[in-house]
Each structure stands twice: as C-alpha cells, then as structure tokens.
Design a protein around this nucleic acid. Sequence first.
DNA 1: TAGGCCATCTGGTCCT
DNA 2: AGGACCAGATGGCCTA
Length: 142
Amino acid sequence: MQGHLVDSTLIDVVIDMNMMEFPQKFASEAKRQVDDDASSPDIQTRLSDSPWSDMEDDEHELRYCSTHGHHSKSKRRRIINVVQRQAANVRERKRMFSLNEAFDELRRKVPTFAYEKRLSRIDTLRLAIVYISFMTDLLENT
DNA sequence: TAGGCCATCTGGTCCT
DNA sequence: AGGACCAGATGGCCTA
C-alpha cells in the first residue's frame, strides 16, 4: 500500500538499497542461546556482603562535566553472581528481540520492492529517514 | 576470503 | 538494589 505513494526520487533511493527477504536465521540463531547460558565463560560467582566493589585507587572518582549539571559519582564495580548474570542475559535477549520486532514493523512501513533481500537494520533506518522527509515535503507543498 | 550483518555476552552507567 | 539501556567484543552465517 505504502509503495503507491512513492515518486521516482524515493524510488531511486530504494533501488540503491538492499531489498526484502524475511529473516531466515532468526530461528537458527536462537539455537545457541539458552543452552549457552550454562556454558557461558567462567564467570566467577562472587558473593559478598555488598554487590559493589571499590576500584583500586582513588582515580575511581568519576567526575561528570559540570556544564551538564551532573555531580561527581564514585566509580564502583557492581558484582553480580552467575544467576544474576544469566538473568541479565535473558533480559538483554528479550530487549534485543523487542528491538528487532520494532525493526520488522518499521520495515513493513517503509516502501520497498520485494526483491531478494530484506533491509538491514541500518538500511531500514536510513530509508525511513528518507521516506519521512519525503512525506513531510509532500505535506508541506500541498 | 573479506566484509557486512546479526545474535549474544558482558560490564559500565543511568534510572526507578 | 536491581532492571533498562548502551556500547564493545566475539563468533557465526552469508554473499560478492
């Protein structure tokens, strides 16, 4: 539907970019995910009274630029155990998954030709920028 | 085979 | 305290 509104200017841009193909490796990539959790690099289980560990010397005072209105913060390393790390990995995977869902949705919104390849994430963003600019111009000139 | 793209892990920082 | 967000590193897959 959205492709009908596109003029030659936008089409020229689109032609230069990679075209669609639905993710074939999405499922295959998931293969190594969950099972790898147990075999992740030997993260030491570091259980201590405090989840924070001081950096060695007094250089660990992290000073933010005062022009940005930040206060100085002490730079302390947060110590997490294996369970917490794995939980964080799962959350990160979910977060990236939802990010990719958003990219897929954006891919469906921008006009493309269903050639052989799907748009990469960076191409999707660039094309969306071009498309939005084009539509904005169209709106302003009517 | 090199380069592009992507998923995943990880540690640092921000935010609630 | 802990979850969200981010960026760097790494490794796999695919294509020219």
